[in-house]
Design a protein around this nucleic acid. Structure first.
Lengths: 228, 228
DNA sequence: GATGGGTTTTAATGAATTTTTAATATGTTT
DNA sequence: AAACATATTAAAAATTCATTAAAACCCATC
């Protein structure tokens, strides 16, 4: 996947040096020499990241940054400027910038900062504690479960049971284990809740998917595992 | 819960100043004075972000950063150091850091850089003393709440409850969590104040607006989030 | 110290959802 | 095939939730 960068810088020498350096890193770079052209390019293309000088003709970097941010929350913005006061930096971040680099800077530093930002952009935004088994993802904070990226709504008990299975993946858990840990009851042979709930879970997390997850070990219990 | 920060800094004066400043911004801060304690705290807690000095006793900041990154790719890491060469910065980013700030630095700059990073993880954005979730804006100083720019008057308890929801955006909070953190009571099953107040809030912040904010997870609690 | 307006809490209702039971069907082991 | 274990289904029971109204509380003002 090609990463597209919009570079807006009016000092042609710097612009050209950056364009060359970034191209060598296999980024696809479009260059604008003033803010209005930068805005036009932004309007008519899809970029992953923008590098903006602040002192630009026609439309300054702060304004352009704000414009970009208002139209695209995802896109990364790096401010690149000689203005080195805390006020300037705060104004830059307030305008929605993701990083602020002061000239003169080392090109290598720009590169690693860009990489650090892109890394975050490509990580899916799963805040918090997640448990994973293959393509099954359980978010313990939002209580959301997905498989192959598709959301699977679970009730409280279903969620608890699946969590117990995941935490004991590849281990056969008996009905007594499950009763004790998920239902907080001494196993009472008269009930078959556990069987029923395993059935509920299977319908939700296996039925419309290609592979099995919960296997029955007759006489022993159940085990959740990835393959065969 | 709130946003949790792990601060590892051996110069006690700096550490204390940072801890104080960050706490005032409603971040929950744990402080370690050497790398090994930092590692132990990381192992036994869940943090959203780490601020690491590089020259640390027992285990330096690069090593700790690498350790954190190997065990948690989500967590944000900010390096904070007097080492101001490009080589140092590159080493920091290579170790998995998300930002690298050179001492002496302005505390305000650290704050805006932290905010810029948290924004990417879809945490509620705090600009100064303002919390934002989508078009909902809560000013902690003036105690004013607006949605789509329209003012929404809230009572003290309603405000506290909404603040708790916003600080726990995308996280399902149980009634026990809410009781403990907003009402300061051990949850007493006989009361349904929380349900009533959720109802109050919904009437004020959702009724006349296009999208829902507070969702019920039956048997688990409530969650405030932007979409579906 | 009483009064009154707003805030907070309790209590009660019905509706919605989840959990459990129970009965029947299917499968497994000896 | 018999005996036992598990799967499936539907309906009953239990729980949880939304909503409303009224009671209790708080606090500023008279």
């Amino acid at each position: 996947m090609e990463i597209k960068i919009l570079l807006v810088e009016d000092e042609k020498k710097i612009a050209e040096a950056l364009r060359k350096g970034l191209s060598e890193q296999h980024y696809a770079v479009d260059v604008a020499y003033d803010g209005m052209i930068g805005k036009k390019l932004f309007d008519s293309n899809t970029y992953d990241l923008a590098i903006l000088d602040i002192n630009l003709p026609l439309m300054n970097g702060y304004e352009l940054c704000r414009y970009i941010r208002n139209h695209n929350e995802q896109m990364l913005v790096v401010m690149l400027t000689a203005l080195n006061t805390t006020e300037n930096k705060i104004e830059g971040f307030d305008a929605g910038a993701d990083d602020y680099i002061v000239k003169p800077f080392d090109f290598q530093e720009l590169l690693v900062r860009i990489r650090a930002l892109l890394k975050r952009l490509h990580y899916p935004v799963t805040t918090g504690n997640v448990l994973k088994v293959g393509d099954l993802v359980m978010n313990l904070d939002s209580k959301e479960v997905t498989r192959e990226g598709r959301a699977i709504p679970l009730t409280a008990k279903e969620f608890q049971l699946l969590e117990y299975f995941i935490r004991n993946k590849n281990k056969v858990v008996s009905r007594i284990d499950i009763a004790l840990n998920v239902w907080d009851i001494d196993f009472d042979t008269k009930t078959n809740v556990i069987d029923v709930y395993v059935n509920f879970l299977r319908k939700k997390i296996e039925k419309d998917f290609s592979s099995k997850l919960i296997y029955t070990q007759v006489g022993m219990g159940y085990v959740l595992k990835e393959n065969s």
